[in-house]
């Protein structure tokens, strides 16, 4: 959690950015850091947490993730409205923004699905939720790797690796082939 925040804090690019743009950068970095712990929380992978408590935190973290996404996009919107409009309408010249928008929709659909989860069969819910988590992870990693941003290449590689490992573990648990 602290890693991306420190990496972004050290970026020379911050000197040339307005506070609202800096806030958007931090929100993005924090949201990505949450993607590392988020898949570990409900599966008893975090030391010292019971499964019940882990799931409780998982829900809270999910809400924080949605809030960070809103701050990230809202901050970018205030900084440069036409660039964000282009990205959201998928007509941006920058490929990384398409991955970012993919991840954004992943988060929005996940939140909506979570609100209606009682209407879903447990298996449908679980597969959908984890499938969306994979989409969010993939979208976020490409979004970040393709950007010349504030996190720096080493920070991006380490965080991306952690997101892929943590999400991959959760996906494997739910989607692995089982004997009949």
């Amino acid at each position: 959690m602290l890693g991306p925040v420190l990496a972004i804090s050290a970026s020379p690019l911050l000197a040339y950015r307005q506070p609202v743009y800096i806030l958007a950068s931090f929100a993005g970095g924090i949201a990505m850091a949450l993607l590392v712990i988020q898949p570990l929380l409900p599966n008893n992978d975090m030391p010292g947490l019971t499964r019940r408590f882990g799931r409780m935190i998982h829900r809270g973290t999910g809400a924080v993730l949605v809030a960070m996404l809103a701050v990230h996009i809202g901050g970018l919107w205030i900084t440069s409205p036409p660039d964000v409009v282009d990205a959201l309408l998928l007509r941006s010249p920058t490929p990384f923004s398409i991955w970012g928008v993919l991840a954004m929709w992943g988060v929005i659909v996940t939140a909506a699905l979570a609100a209606w989860r009682r209407k879903l069969k447990p298996k449908t819910w679980q597969r959908g939720h984890v499938g969306l988590a994979a989409l969010i992870a993939v979208g976020t990693v490409f979004h970040v790797i393709l950007i010349d941003g504030t996190m720096g290449n080493v920070g991006k590689a380490v965080l991306s690796g952690a997101v892929v490992l943590a999400t991959g573990l959760a996906v494997w648990r739910v989607w692995r082939p089982r004997r009949a």
């Binding site: 690019l13 040339y16 950015r17 743009y21 970018l76 440069s80 660039d83 920058t94 990384f96 923004s97 393709l146 950007i147 010349d148 941003g149």
Partner: peptide
């Protein structure tokens, strides 16, 4: 020019 919105 410095990188902004992903690319310089």
């Amino acid at each position: 020019i410095v990188p902004a919105f992903g690319q310089a």
